[in-house]
Amino acid sequence: MNATIALILLQDGLTSGLIYGLLALSILLVFLVTRVLWVPAGDFLVLGALTLAVLRQGEVPGTVWILAGLAAVTAIVETWRAWRAGDWRGWPRLIALVVVPSAAAVLATLWLAPQNAPVPVAILLVLALVTPIGFLTYRLVFRPMVDQPTLTLMFVAVAVHYVLTGLGLTAFGSESFRSPPFLPGRLDVGFTRLSYQLLIVLAVSAALMAALGLFFGRTLWGKALRATAMQRFGARLVGIRTESMGALAFTIAALIGAVSGVLIGPMTALYYDSGFLVSLKGFVGTVMAGMASFPLSVLGALLVGLVETGASFYASPFKEAIVFGLLVPFLLWRSAVQIRTRGKGHE
């Protein structure tokens, strides 16, 4: 391998690593705030990517019907829940939250998609279509189950992954999609040529991470989210509605998924069921960071991307096995830590 190939591999690894990093952020956020293992993270990425690909063909993506159906079901179920509880106080606001953004996104897409909307508009449509799905999933499925054991929540997350994958199949069929690149080619910077794709991914993920950092560090909602992540019960005691925080975490996670989908769309061909593998790589990143730290999770995910690219160059058939094998030394280390601290175990 010479320096040129090394630099190209490095770029590829960084690009996919950054995308895994974004997913790792969404996984960690959802996990810390709601204890749900966010298996469907990759499904949101796929939804984002396929929606964009279809939009850029000038057609109406099936995501429209997924969102419309989900919003309708959620509105009906929430109405039924309010009726059964005899408590209509939060109902109008909730229905507005459920219906308005979804209806707006659906109608805008139905109107703009056939007109071959320009790329930035298409991207906005993707975000508007995919983000509410996270919120709706939380309202419909996870919120009623907040008190269930973590194991049950995880099974539900896997089932939701099944549902989303199945809906993806009905909406997009079983063929693969790849969007045209936003900016083809590479930028010559002297010692190497940087692909525009990398620069875009770098800029967008840096901006997104900075925005999240500001949100968590500077805003009341962000601080409330962090408080919930650290100590749910304590957060409740100081008046934070931890359930609203769950909804917020799911919404942000879906938004992150949609953005990563937009970014990955032009890089690789994706199928309706490609999400699971991508989720797993995000998981590897978060697990390497001990499922606790956001920056370290991104670093872990970057490592996953780099190892994966290197492995696909050297030992292509074993690339997945090598990536998941990355966990072994980490698990050994955690295991050693666990033995040393032998501390207080809780049920």
Binding site: P144, V156, A159, V160, Y162, V163, T165, L169, T170, G173
Partner: peptide
């Protein structure tokens, strides 16, 4: 074929709920 997976997932979610 194409509805099977989604329907199955929905059934499991309902059951767990």
């Amino acid at each position: 074929g194409s509805y099977e997976m989604a329907a199955f997932g929905i059934l499991v979610v309902l059951l767990l709920n």
